[in-house]
Design a protein around this nucleic acid. Sequence first.
DNA 1: CGTTGCATGTAAGGTGTTACATGATTAC
DNA 2: GTAATCATGTAACACCTTACATGCAACG
Lengths: 195, 195
Amino acid sequence: MNPLPITSWAVLGLLSFGRELSGYDLKKWADQSLGFFYWSPSYSQIYSELRRLESVGYAASEEVAGDIRAKRLYRITPVGEDALRAWARETPVEPVVLKHGPMLRLWLGHLQDPERLREMLLAQRELAEKRRVEAETDVAAAESTPEWAFPTLTLRWAARYYAAERDRIDAMLADLADLACDLGDADADRPPFSR
Amino acid sequence: MNPLPITSWAVLGLLSFGRELSGYDLKKWADQSLGFFYWSPSYSQIYSELRRLESVGYAASEEVAGDIRAKRLYRITPVGEDALRAWARETPVEPVVLKHGPMLRLWLGHLQDPERLREMLLAQRELAEKRRVEAETDVAAAESTPEWAFPTLTLRWAARYYAAERDRIDAMLADLADLACDLGDADADRPPFSR
DNA sequence: CGTTGCATGTAAGGTGTTACATGATTAC
DNA sequence: GTAATCATGTAACACCTTACATGCAACG
C-alpha cells in the first residue's frame, strides 16, 4: 500500500481536534484554517479522502438524522490518532510550495501595459488585506480556547503573512513607478516585445 | 483545443527574453527565476512542454552541435510572442497558491514534541535565509541589464519575501516559547493527544 | 413556485511527479 | 576505470479539479 497523500493527513488532522464532522462542514472549516497556509481541497476530494480514511480504519462514520436532513458524520479512530501522530513525528516535512500568479505576470512585465500591471497589483493588495483581516478575526475567536493553541499560532502566522504580502505589494508598486521613470528616460532602448 | 496550462506559458515566458536554450538549460534557469515565486517544473515536464509548444507553433527548435555534444535549442516564434502577449494581457491572473508544509505540522502541534517543532522551525529558518541570499545575489547580477528590468523586480520581491519568511519564523519561535510556558503552568488541562 | 443552499457524491480528464533508460563525457 | 554530470527522453501513475447529478428544504 502506498503512503497516504498529504491531503489525507490534513483531513485526518481536521478530525484530530475531537469533533465529529460531515464532509460539508469539514470543507467549510478547511477554508478557514488550512486555507490560510496550506490549500483547501475541493468538496469532491474531501469526500473521497474521508472514504479512504475510513477504508484504512483511521476514521469512522455514522449516518445521523440531523436537524433537517441526514448527514454522515466522521470521527477519528484511536488507530487513526496513532497513525497521524506517527506521521507528524516521523515523516520529513514537505517543502514549501509557492505559486504566485501575479508575480508570474510581473516577471513577464515586458509584454504588458504598465498601467494594467498596476491595477493587477492593487487588486492583489486588496485581496491580501482581506485575508489578513479574516485571519486576525479568527485569531481573536480562537486564542481564548486552550485546545486551539496551535491553530491560533498558525492563524497568527497567517495574519503576519498577509500583512507582509500587502506591504510587499506596496514596495513593488513603488519599484514599478521608478522603473516607469527610467524607461521614460531611455526611450531608445526599449526592452523586447514592448510594442 | 484546450487552453495551454500555465506551465506552458511560463516556459514560453522563459523563451521570451530572446535567447535560444536547451531543455536542460531552461530547467536550470527556471530554478533561479521562476523557482523563487512560482514553482520550477521537473525536467520531464519542461521537455514535454517544449514539444507541445513546438507542436502548436509557439516555439521552434533545431539540433545544434554544441561545444561537446548535440543539443536541441528552442526559441520562441513570432506567433508564440503574440500568443504569449495575448495571454499575459487577457487571461485572468491565477490566484496565489501556498502550501506551507512546516505550518501544517505546527497546526498539528498538539501531536508533536515541542522540541521537534523548534528544530523544524530552525531548519526552515536556515532555508529561507539561504533563499534570501540567493535572490539578493541574483538581483545584484541582473539589475544593471535593462532587458532584465522586470525579472529584477520579481527577484527583489523574492528577496523581501524570504526575509519576511525568516522573520515570521523568528516570531513563531517566540510565540511557541510563550505557549510552552502557558502549558507548563496549566499541567492539568493538557490539549488532547499530547501524551 | 422558482431559486438558493444543504449534502453527497460520480465521472472524466488533465497536470505533474517519480522512476527508469540511455549514451556520451569529464573528473578523480 | 568508475563515478558523476550532461542531455534527452519514456512510461506509469497518483493527485486533484471541473462538471455534472441528485434530492430535499427553506426563503421570498
